[in-house]
Nucleic acid binder design. Structure first.
Lengths: 166, 166
DNA sequence: CCTCGTTAGTTGAAGCGTCAATCGCTGATA
DNA sequence: TATCAGCGATTGACGCTTCAACTAACGAGG
């Protein structure tokens, strides 16, 4: 299933990155790290929410009944189940979400956003959107923003494919 | 059905993201999270190095004498000094780097890559480059890759500006 | 109906990053 | 040259993520 050509012989045969490719990769990597850093700090400072908690609230706010199965939520966020369990436990203690057993599947757990959680999201959204606009959207032309989104969507699709066959 | 959090009250006056902008932003955010996740796991699996350690080794390998001041290294990586201290302590224990006092400034500390660290980097590079190529570079056209790099370079520049005046 | 492999979710420990406090050193100023 | 605000780096505590182990329930096949 998995063949690794690189260890077949004494001589490695790797397609290295060109100078351009390396430069673009580094700009992407460094810019992303710093951007997420700033966005997280501003959200935390203005609202007391972490980026992770904010994302959970967003996904729940978009779900029917403001409710999702834990595994669905984990899937949408691309977080591990374990990570989500810990996050939700903290958010439940903070009164932002609630967990209830799932009727259809006794193994499952439904996670619902509380009114307090919704209020918290509504209160936090302006700050976060403003940050995203300031440091990302307004820093780029529309064409650049489109290209960024489409490129990363292609990367996501490639990851889906490679995850599918294995 | 989608809950709309963008309810303009009497107080808020926020420029929300358009549907396109929000879609691109999410594609960027989700794609990036999953990409870095995969790259980190493959590097760890193939070489036992974390992405952070790998980056430290890369920066040191490019520096004169394979040596950098702690603060220079932290600056290049956009890591906090504290984070770097912890990382370097672990890497020093693993024999990958060494710390020596700085002659010019008695407060400073020079960080040098050991031969073992260099060997480790050389051994790890093919795996990592292959991962980056597989999931990023080869998933995109050259134009997309260029656009991605240039967009994120612009974001980095915007962050520099906003950091400059404050 | 029973296995039995798989899936949903949780748990606790260990690892990494953050944060605030700290310490020694530097360099500008008076 | 004495002072002192600021810098370079470290430290330990705390919080979040990962990882492996675990429980419980599902459901296909005999």
């Amino acid at each position: 299933m998995q063949e690794d050509v690189r260890e077949d012989g004494p001589v490695t045969d790797v397609k290295w990155l060109s100078d351009d490719e390396q430069g673009w990769w580094r700009a992407y990597r460094d810019g992303t790290a710093r951007l997420l850093d700033v966005l997280g700090h501003e959200l935390e400072r203005d609202t007391g929410l972490s980026l992770g908690e904010y994302e959970v609230l967003v996904r729940l706010s978009e779900a029917p009944e403001r409710t999702l199965r834990m595994s669905e939520l984990a899937g949408e966020l691309a977080h591990s189940r374990s990570r989500l369990t810990h996050t939700i436990r903290r958010m439940e203690n903070a009164g932002l979400v609630e967990r209830t057993p799932c009727a259809q599947d006794a193994r499952g757990v439904n996670c619902t956003m509380t009114p307090a959680g919704h209020q918290r999201l509504v209160a936090a959204a302006p700050s976060h959107v403003t940050s995203v606009r300031t440091y990302l959207v307004d820093a780029l032309t529309t064409e650049q923003m489109r290209a960024l989104g489409e490129a990363m969507a292609a990367v996501g699709a490639a990851l889906n494919e490679s995850a599918a066959d294995e």
